[in-house]
């Protein structure tokens, strides 16, 4: 179990920092000493060469998700979904390694809460795609709706077209990569991770971002509160080139023209003590 180390400052001595990180994830899945600590205890052994197709045209979202789970349970490591018809909440909560190919478009909340699968979608996705994604890759060939990649924690989330507003709102890790444009309030309250947008960004980019990095290849309508330009270093360029090449999104003119946006960190206050706590110390 991960624990917060004790520091010798006054506030710790007075018992003001008592939190213990004892969540299920910390406890079970990230114990490096335990073999297989990065796999979920009830995950399935799947073979990527074992392939199945699922026509979901007449299925409810619950039936689709149960169907995916049953196929994984029987060892299928590659699953093709046909005729998704922009249904909502498809392919959610997959905590397993898996190649998932979706032929068509998804509605709202597609592929949310996933940890591990590699997903490719030939169509478009609606609002809140890949919300809270934890690892793996998700590549969308067409456009995406608003709140794309909200609160993601890890993995590569790629939309080759344009995305709606509030992209990467509250993102806590991972990479969001957009081939086209993004709407207003992208990166709002971003905490960690990286966002690459090859096209233009709408107004209030990076508003109230705590940390993380945003790279914009086109024009920025305007920056949000506490979002400031940063220096695009050689390391940034190397990383951008590698990532964009990986998903066939590298612009012909390279990445030198990208603008880097970071947090000004003038709004940081989550580590501050409350006024009453300060009085106690003083």
């Amino acid at each position: 179990m991960a624990q917060v180390g004790t520091q010798d400052d006054a506030s710790h001595e007075m018992g003001m920092h008592t939190e213990q990180l004892s969540g299920r994830t910390q406890q079970v899945f990230f114990n490096l000493d335990e073999e297989g600590g990065f796999a979920y205890p009830d995950s399935f052994e799947v073979d990527f060469n074992k392939r199945a197709e699922l026509d979901v045209e007449n299925m409810t979202p619950k039936e689709v998700n149960t169907g995916i789970r049953e196929l994984m349970a029987s060892g299928h490591g590659t699953i093709v979904l046909k005729n998704p018809g922009a249904k909502h909440s498809i392919a959610v909560g997959i905590l397993n390694k898996l190649n998932l190919i979706i032929e068509g478009s998804l509605g709202y909340f597609g592929c949310g809460l996933c940890d591990g699968p590699n997903i490719r979608i030939s169509g478009r996705v609606g609002w809140s795609c890949a919300e809270n994604m934890m690892s793996g890759t998700l590549v969308i060939e067409k456009n995406a709706g608003s709140t794309f990649g909200a609160a993601i924690r890890g993995g590569d989330l790629v939309c080759k077209g344009s995305v709606g507003s509030r992209t990467g709102i509250d993102m806590k890790g991972g990479n969001i990569i957009v081939g086209g444009d993004t709407g207003a309030f992208s990166g709002f309250m971003m905490q960690r991770g990286r966002m690459i947008v090859c096209g233009n960004a709408g107004k209030n980019l990076g508003d109230s971002m705590y940390d993380g990095t945003i790279y914009i290849g086109g024009k920025i309508a305007d920056l949000g509160v506490d979002a400031v330009p940063g220096e695009l270093t050689d390391l940034d360029k190397q990383w951008l080139t590698r990532k964009l090449k990986m998903y066939e999104l590298l612009p012909e003119k390279g990445v030198d023209h990208f603008t880097k946006i970071v947090a000004g960190k003038q709004l940081w206050n989550y580590d501050n003590l409350e006024p009453t706590e300060k009085k106690l110390i003083l």
Binding site: G104, G123, R124, N143, V163, G164, A184
Partner: peptide
């Protein structure tokens, strides 16, 4: 029902 291109209008 056929595959089409759609998008979200912006703010």
């Amino acid at each position: 029902p056929q595959e089409i291109d759609t998008w979200d209008p912006y703010d």
